[in-house]
Design a protein around this nucleic acid. Structure first.
Length: 223
DNA sequence: AGCACGATTAACT
DNA sequence: GTTAATCGTGCTC
């Protein structure tokens, strides 16, 4: 019988076991908590096998309920925003400006319309494919915007209502080390024109600090 | 049926 | 800094 040192076996298994996917409970929480804690987590898009796209979440925004006049749910339940009213852990993907798709993750309990907009990512896997989908743009311009990241990762209306927690999900989020408090920048949401105060200025935008994002990018490039 | 607008982006001056 | 692109959506008539 062949001899396998235990440490070696563990190391091998360690590389084979995928990180756990974020469970529904991660999303069934106050939206600000989810938006903050999504920083550093890994967004995974399984495309035509064996293509697998993966990115680190760098920027998010919270949209919370009917009272939030910056939130699409302000006008009540409509065909477009229906996903936001459903079970947490599903995607809310919408179309805007006649050409752009946006990815949100639904939060809170069923019946409370809230979601987290994914605004920026750091590409990890499938960079060549993402660059092609982005018209050959450089790495720095692949996923540094909510519409850009959807184009890069081929996320469109097909994913509206997609259950990110289902075992067979083609779009999901994997657990990764949390980003510490001193590396998080909080500020007002962007792009809200014609939205009245106080909603326009609510500090519901969360970003990984540029310094830490650079550090993450360097770690990636070493692999 | 018609219309104003948008959780943006890229290409300008 | 400004602006055009481009069309689904939700609201009004």
């Amino acid at each position: 019988m062949a001899f396998f040192p235990l440490a070696s076996l563990r190391a091998t298994i360690g590389t084979m076991v995928p990180p756990p996917r974020l469970p529904r409970g991660f999303f069934h929480k106050p939206t600000l908590i989810v938006a903050r804690d999504l920083l550093g987590q890994r967004l995974v898009r399984l495309d035509t096998p064996p293509l697998r796209l993966e990115s680190i979440i760098l920027e998010t925004e919270a949209y919370i309920g009917m009272e939030d006049l910056g939130c699409h749910a302000r006008a009540g339940l409509t065909q477009r925003n229906a996903s936001m009213w459903g079970e947490p852990g599903h995607a809310y993907v919408y179309f805007t400006y006649g050409m752009h798709w946006m990815l949100n993750v639904v939060t809170e309990r069923r019946g409370l319309p809230a979601a987290v907009l994914i605004r920026a990512l750091l590409p990890l896997q499938g960079i060549q494919v993402m660059s092609r989908r982005r018209g050959g743009k450089p790495l720095s311009a692949l996923t540094n915007g909510p519409a850009k990241l959807c184009q890069a990762m081929a996320i469109d209306r097909r994913f509206d209502g997609h259950d990110l927690c289902a075992p067979e999900a083609q779009l999901y989020i994997e657990a990764a080390p949390a980003v510490s408090e001193e590396c998080v920048i909080v500020g007002p949401r962007v792009g809200l024109t014609r939205v009245p105060e106080p909603w326009k200025s609510m500090p519901w935008r969360f970003q990984v600090s540029p310094a830490y994002a650079t550090r993450l990018a360097e770690e990636v490039s070493l692999v």
